[in-house]
Design a binder for these strands. Structure first.
Lengths: 212, 212
DNA sequence: TAAATAACAGAATTCGATTTATGTAACTTA
DNA sequence: TAAGTTACATAAATCGAATTCTGTTATTTA
């Protein structure tokens, strides 16, 4: 009998499972990741993993979730700086993109998992996007209060930022443009949008005839 | 023996093959499309199909190619209107998007094939995009000549339009937004970009520090 | 002699049998 | 009695054999 390792408190055990899963993920890719393998890695039965995660999908979601924490921290720091709100909004979008790109380079398998979950609208991805939207809404509100904006419909403005930056936030498109200078492109797209927000009060009023 | 149908001239036969393939494609999807089935449909041997198309891929490319002809015609018509060049540019991008969306609704299987070929950078898709780029370049040049533009680097401007409209030109993203009013969104994105092109001479001069 | 086919090799796909994995529930142990 | 395992049913992935398909070449037909 091998001596059993000391029992860990639940949270640490949960984290240990995530770490083991992350390690296997980095080696094998998400479609090769097996709950059984994660359990073996830790010397436990796979049934025990299910005491911490309701499903394999939930475990994968947790990996991505923990992995996005760093980006979230940076974004929140930017949000609280003492700069004009539109500058912070700009900095946040750029930061998200820079981090996404870095992750694609450094941890391609985790990035592919994120891409996969994003496509399936998993909780981690949904939450990640919701955070951005929330911060964006708040910053636009601040900007509107200080009179920086010519446009009135802040939700429409936010949707427009989202639409125009799809190339820089959609996992697959990020992956395809790793070699381009997308930071400059994104920066210029944001400049154009913010300029229009500041100077064209009619921008969001014109809706196109054949809407569909 | 069934009486053999009268022999067609080469071009018409080529078209007949494309039509038959298109019909099967609509029924079964591109991954189920078999060269043998197309030949059977026309009562010929599959080897004969290869007298007109060097490969299955080339046949699929030809389907998409013929299918894009309508959009191209409309775009070219817009390009020759007697309107300011930037208006025509705007109208062209909108027209492309409207047609793409309509096709996704009306012929989902052909659209999926286009999506597939687009991902593989096939000739039909490459050409389609090249056309847009060419027209865009020409229209920006005209606009620059009549002094409508504040920016100087026309290729950079074009790249920016391409980047900011990715959501409206990437097949998968179009498919995912069939229910949204993307015509209005696209229209507004273009307004913002063109406004910036017209009024901010520095827009394309600022490159972002960490380019990558 | 141009148009078409039959015949073929190698690639890709399908199919059914087998194995492996997921998720649950009953059971064991410290 | 909470932490963990064994045992199990169902779902999913894997594998090898058989089939079908692609693309080429030699042959036939009008």
């Amino acid at each position: 009998m091998t001596p059993r390792p000391p029992r860990l408190p639940p949270d640490e055990q949960r984290d240990a499972i995530i770490d083991a899963a992350r390690k296997l993920l980095a080696e094998q890719g998400h479609d090769r990741l097996r709950v059984v393998s994660v359990a073996n890695e830790l010397g436990m039965s796979h049934a025990n993993v299910y005491r911490f995660f309701p499903s394999r999908e939930a475990l994968m979601d947790a990996i991505v979730e923990s992995w996005l924490a760093y980006s979230r921290a940076e974004v929140k720091e930017i949000a609280t700086r003492s700069e004009p709100p539109l500058n912070r909004l700009r900095a946040i979008v750029l930061s998200m993109h820079r981090n996404a790109k870095r992750r694609f380079r450094e941890e391609p398998n985790v990035s592919e998992l994120y891409e996969h979950l994003h496509g399936r609208r998993a909780e981690s991805a949904r939450q990640h996007i919701a955070l951005l939207y929330g911060l964006g809404r708040e910053l636009l509100r601040e900007a509107a209060e200080t009179g920086e904006l010519a446009v009135k419909d802040l939700d429409a403005a936010l949707r427009l930022v989202h639409a125009a930056t799809a190339k820089f936030t959609t996992p697959r498109l990020i992956r395809e443009s790793l070699d381009e200078d997308t930071m400059t492109q994104l920066s210029q797209v944001l400049d154009a949008l913010l300029l229009a927000f500041r100077t064209d009060p009619e921008l969001l009023e014109r809706s196109h005839p054949d809407a569909r």
